[in-house]
Amino acid sequence: MTWLIRTGGLNLYPVNNAIGTMVHAAEHSNIDTVIIGGRGRKRGGVVLSVDQLWLHAAIDESCAHLFDAAGYPHHQHFQYAVKLLFIINYVIETC
């Protein structure tokens, strides 16, 4: 697996110790490109081969189901947190 990191982000500045900066300050938004087994999985910060419209619709449907089942109102801030977890899980499984 190869990762290409964007180093222009403010969270990575200043780079006094390159390894320490990557370990302690880099985050997912700094990853520009991921290559696994010779195949590009992320390019330009965008995960490839993911149907974004389908993924968003599936996440919205799942959020509504979970909130209904738990008796929670459909508040926007809950949906964003759950969406983020679903997206992270989906990306991990597909990469």
Results as ranks from 00 to 15, higher is better:
49 S>R: 15
52 Q>W: 08
42 K>F: 03
74 H>E: 09
51 D>G: 15
51 D>V: 13
31 I>F: 12
70 A>M: 09
68 D>T: 07
29 S>H: 15
36 I>V: 06
76 Q>D: 10
36 I>L: 01
32 D>Q: 10
53 L>F: 12
45 G>V: 14
66 L>N: 01
79 Q>D: 10
26 A>H: 05
60 D>S: 11
74 H>N: 09
55 L>N: 02
47 V>D: 08
52 Q>F: 08
34 V>G: 03
80 Y>R: 11
51 D>W: 13
67 F>I: 12
65 H>R: 04
72 Y>K: 14
54 W>T: 09
55 L>P: 00
75 H>Y: 07
35 I>L: 11
79 Q>C: 03
30 N>I: 11
34 V>F: 09
51 D>L: 13
35 I>H: 01
28 H>M: 14
33 T>E: 04
61 E>W: 00
79 Q>V: 00
71 G>S: 10
64 A>H: 05
52 Q>T: 12
43 R>E: 05
80 Y>T: 12
75 H>T: 09
72 Y>A: 15
31 I>D: 05
41 R>P: 02
60 D>F: 01
26 A>W: 05
26 A>K: 08
38 G>A: 08
72 Y>G: 11
77 H>R: 14
69 A>I: 06
67 F>G: 04
43 R>Q: 08
39 R>C: 01
54 W>M: 09
78 F>Y: 12
35 I>N: 10
38 G>W: 10
28 H>D: 15
61 E>N: 03
56 H>W: 10
54 W>Y: 06
52 Q>C: 09
35 I>V: 15
73 P>W: 13
49 S>L: 13
64 A>Q: 12
30 N>C: 09
27 E>Y: 11
30 N>A: 11
47 V>K: 02
53 L>P: 09
34 V>S: 09
79 Q>L: 07
28 H>V: 06
60 D>H: 08
42 K>M: 14
63 C>N: 14
39 R>F: 00
27 E>C: 15
58 A>V: 02
63 C>V: 14
58 A>I: 00
64 A>E: 08
78 F>E: 03
80 Y>F: 09
44 G>D: 09
67 F>Q: 15
74 H>M: 06
72 Y>M: 15
58 A>P: 01
49 S>G: 11
42 K>T: 08
62 S>G: 10
44 G>H: 00
31 I>A: 15
46 V>S: 04
49 S>P: 02
52 Q>V: 12
53 L>A: 13
46 V>K: 14
42 K>I: 06
44 G>V: 04
48 L>Y: 01
27 E>S: 14
44 G>P: 01
38 G>L: 06
57 A>E: 14
31 I>C: 13
30 N>P: 01
56 H>T: 11
67 F>E: 10
60 D>P: 08
53 L>V: 14
64 A>T: 13
68 D>G: 06
39 R>W: 01
50 V>G: 01
49 S>A: 15
77 H>L: 13
60 D>C: 04
48 L>P: 00
44 G>N: 07
66 L>P: 01
29 S>N: 12
28 H>N: 12
80 Y>N: 11
39 R>N: 05
26 A>S: 11
40 G>M: 02
51 D>F: 12
50 V>D: 04
35 I>W: 05
35 I>R: 02
67 F>M: 14
